[in-house]
């Protein structure tokens, strides 16, 4: 069960806004987290608390393939990103590194900045504790659920490789 405060943004939040190329000469997640969301929200880093949730409308994470973007978000303590939809590379990267990303129009339309959400990833239930509304999120396709329950692509691949060796 995840619980945290919502930081809400609009459409087309790009990877340069999430982590600028100025900071790409390092790949240490903790270092990247110090500049997370700087391009769109200078105060994000000082506001964010462990467990908090990033919410956006459409095409979140568009632009570059830099995995530094979901890594920075994850290392900043964010527990989940919710949007109406995501740019595909960002979505893929997030799943691969084990950062939960959820697509749900209703929760985005019915949640304001600062609201507190409670998320049950296994049942797909999201509860807005601020206004009491409850939402159902479309479950992940089987393959992705498998990937997530393995703990991300590296763990999943390890299991595959082990299977091959048998």
């Amino acid at each position: 069960m995840l619980e945290g405060k919502v930081h809400k943004y609009g459409a087309n939040v790009d990877t340069d806004a999430i982590i600028s190329a100025r900071y790409l000469s390092v790949s240490d997640p903790a270092e990247l987290a110090r500049h997370c969301m700087e391009g769109i929200d200078q105060d994000f880093v000082s506001k964010v608390q462990p467990g908090d949730i990033i919410m956006a409308t459409t095409n979140f994470g568009c632009g570059s393939s830099r995995e530094h973007a979901p890594l920075a978000i994850k290392a900043s303590g964010v527990s989940c990103v919710i949007a109406k939809n995501f740019a595909r590379i960002f979505f893929r990267n997030a799943i691969n590194i084990g950062l939960p990303v959820l697509e749900c129009d209703a929760v985005v339309d019915n949640t304001g900045a600062g609201d507190i959400l409670e998320i049950d990833l296994s049942s797909g239930k999201i509860k807005n504790l601020t206004n009491g509304k409850v939402f159902d999120v479309r479950p992940y396709p089987d393959f992705m659920a498998e990937l997530l329950s393995a703990g991300g692509l590296i763990e999943y691949t390890k299991q595959r490789l082990a299977g091959r060796r048998l």
Binding site: S65, R66, E67, P70, I89, R92, N93, N96, I97, G152, L153, I154, Y156, T157, R160, L161
Partner: peptide, 14 residues
Amino acid sequence: TGMGSTDIAAAMAT
């Protein structure tokens, strides 16, 4: 198609 670094890591192995 473009992907992330973790994808590339897995593909380099398999």
